[in-house]
Design a protein around this nucleic acid. Structure first.
Length: 276
DNA sequence: TGCCAGGCCAAAT
DNA sequence: ATTTGGCATGGC
């Protein structure tokens, strides 16, 4: 079978925050500083309508073997329902800095507002992409030289200080995001966690969505509810860290995929926060 | 109106 | 080592 993708699930599941749906089920966004437009053919195959074919397919992780991923999922009704709902959702390969920065702004925010903040930062500090109405996500240097009040003006609230502090670490080179690629998972998590505004949950998101660490298992409020309700067999209410450490291996070496399927399914079907 | 949101940090057990 | 309170802002 040819590898396929569910664009709606992939681009609106809360792993990336700037893609826009256009008419006819096609989607438009930036990959770095290049415009990309993607759609799906009658049998669901990916169509690259703008952008370099190989670059787009790499960004969308079309090489991930989803059937192999699914074989690693536990077989229970909760996971089965999430799989049916999300089938074709891919964990994509985002640029490290953009992923890190957007997840620093994500704490205690709904997905819709993370998108707003991301958009405001692009409009205020991003570089224009010629021939389009897009602005690229601002560089670390651009945000490092912004004032905290400038960032608050983009709706960041108390996160402004965190984002600015991390931008300065990246811009001055004491946090070398590209070099960190060679670190094993636990050391990468430790390195990321030295940055302002990056705790265990954000570090796991950046590992999963920016570093292709598919075993990373972010536990947020949604996932915590699901895990407690369905998988936790213990007396006391578990901490997020307990849930992560005790349950991640149940979902296999690509636990991050299972996590994202559970997250997107729950958020899409249990009321508020419709993914738009 | 009140509650919660893809949490993190520093202070206080 | 673990728990608690504060934090900005917007949607429902």
């Amino acid at each position: 079978m040819t590898s396929t993708i569910n664009l709606q699930a992939t681009l609106a599941c809360g792993q990336v925050f700037h893609w826009r749906e256009r008419g006819g089920g096609s989607w438009e966004g930036l990959i770095g500083e290049s415009l990309a437009v993607v759609g799906q053919g009658p049998s669901g195959e990916l169509q690259v309508l703008a952008g370099r074919e190989d670059s787009v397919r790499n960004y969308l992780a079309m090489d991930h073997d989803l059937e192999a991923v699914y074989r690693g999922f536990p077989s229970d009704p909760t996971m089965g329902a999430a799989l049916e709902f999300c089938r074709g959702l891919r964990i994509i390969r985002q640029p490290e800095w953009e992923c890190l920065a957007t997840f620093i702004t994500s704490s205690m925010k709904q997905v819709a507002h993370i998108r707003q903040m991301s958009f405001a930062l692009r409009q205020q500090f991003g570089r224009k992409v010629a021939g389009t109405d897009w602005l690229a996500y601002p560089t670390a240097a651009a945000l490092a030289s912004a004032t905290e009040d400038d960032l608050r003006g983009c709706g960041l609230g108390y996160r402004a200080k965190y984002l600015r502090g991390t931008a300065q670490r990246v811009a001055e080179g004491s946090a070398d995001l590209a070099a960190w690629r060679k670190l094993p998972d636990s050391e990468l998590r430790t390195a990321l966690s030295t940055l302002p505004g990056v705790g265990r949950k954000v570090a796991n998101c950046v590992m999963l969505f920016g570093y292709e660490r598919l075993a990373a298992f972010p536990v947020d409020t949604w996932i915590a509810r699901i895990l407690q309700r369905t998988y936790w067999r213990g007396g006391k209410k578990p901490t997020p860290l307990q849930l992560e450490q005790n349950l991640a291996e149940r979902f296999g070496p690509q636990a991050g995929y299972a996590q994202q399927y559970l997250f997107h399914h729950a958020r899409s079907t249990e009321g508020r926060g419709s993914p738009t």
